[in-house]
Write a protein that binds this DNA or RNA. Structure first.
Lengths: 231, 231
DNA sequence: CGGTCGATTTGCGCCATAACAAAAAATCTC
DNA sequence: GAGATTTTTTGTTATGGCGCAAATCGACCG
């Protein structure tokens, strides 16, 4: 198999503090994987045999309850590791990862995990940092869902998306991957209908401009006010 | 300082797979800390300079929003690590840990963290597992808060407490540390009043017996049914 | 360009649950 | 054990946002 160039990953948060030979050791066991838009990289409940790093594109990670309700756990962006079931001592993938745009990832067999962690303490520390960041994020969401009502939760979710994937344009900040009202609803624990109403209200106030599966934030500062003091 | 006996920690999940000299290395930098009931081990926002392992007792970890609303993040039991801000690359403690009964912990200076992780890959893997378990737990709570209504969320919370800290008695399963309706409310994102009503209804059905700051689960199976099928 | 299908918007009625308000009960203190 | 304090229970009222349903809009396709 052709060796992947280490410059592809050297700058990523997961690999900071690692030398060239360490990076080569990491890459030696990886293979690339193309994920066309709409395809699933892995499915909830599947036996977890590999872990991943996203190089390019965007994935949506979802979880489904036994009763069939779905929630969006997070969006994966370039440089993020995902499907690290090994790290969390799980035999199966706890969620489903779907490409929302054409994407490209690196894949390692789970068998490589323990060795890599043991040989590269920096990788261990970085991975913990990533898990910790996700934990913080989850707990923040719990905090919001416990104490705030729908409009604020939606505002926070949009602001988080802006930070993760916002692209400045001359009209405002564009979230540059397809995301539906349904997605926002599943991120905030509300319904499609409520999100739609909230967005309509925001459009009237000039805070956002909605397109189909697109969000254009005209006034992020206004959203901040919405999340701080209440209307 | 007197060396702590390694048998105290050898069997704990955080230290499985570590040999005697590794355990001694870990313990060499630790000191014991008593936390009387009601005292805070650390406070939200404080500079994080140490990390901890609970040997005996029970702590409640809470987080407060800028607006002053509080939520209960989790309960820490014997054998659990807590306050591992280092692991998650945080400078400060993101929450407050309060002893709900007289407790005893081990304390390490943060400066010991990187070295310990680097020297003991097993500790790294175990810690990741712990973080992963908490992440799973958080995401499960998000799932529940998104899709289920108050009664089910409370039922789940009680069942989780039963698993963590339930003690069998001849009348049922007793959660053997002080926990108020307010606590349950803060764990489930509802109000004191709603929790009280729910508990009253359960008492009428014979599912639980409530005492002040105590919960006695008479029929866990009944609660399971409550969380599965509705009604 | 017309047809089809998915996404979004909007109206309406209803219900779970929050908010407010007190009383009652349990526990602690001296 | 009397009083004070905290916790819990319970009643009443108000409302956010969910469920249902139907209309509209926009995009993609042949």
């Amino acid at each position: 198999m052709a060796q992947i160039d280490r410059s592809l990953i050297a700058a990523l948060p997961s690999f900071v503090g690692m030398g060239p030979e360490a990076l080569d050791d990491v890459l030696a066991q990886a293979r690339p994987l193309r994920a066309p838009k709409g395809s699933a990289v892995f499915n909830q409940g599947q036996n977890a045999e590999e872990f991943f790093l996203l190089l390019h594109g965007r994935l949506r990670v979802t979880r489904i309850t036994p009763q069939g309700e779905q929630v969006v756990v997070r969006f994966v962006g370039p440089g993020d590791m995902f499907g690290v079931a090994m790290a969390i001592k799980s035999e199966i993938y706890p969620g489903t990862a779907t490409a929302v745009v054409d994407s490209l990832a690196l894949v390692w067999p789970n068998s490589a995990w323990t060795g890599l962690i043991s040989r590269h303490p920096a990788l261990a520390l970085n991975t913990m940092g990533t898990l910790g960041a996700r934990l913080q994020d989850s707990q923040t969401r719990i905090l919001e869902m416990s104490t705030q009502q729908a409009e604020k939760r939606v505002a926070h979710a949009v602001l988080r998306l802006v930070n993760q994937a916002g692209r400045k344009t001359d009209e405002g900040i564009l979230i540059d991957f397809p995301i539906s009202r349904q997605d926002i609803a599943e991120m905030t624990g509300t319904t499609l209908h409520t999100v739609s109403r909230i967005f309509s209200a925001w459009e009237e106030k000039g805070l956002v401009k909605g397109g189909r599966r697109r969000i254009l934030v005209c006034d992020p500062h206004g959203l901040f006010m919405l999340t701080e003091k209440a209307d």
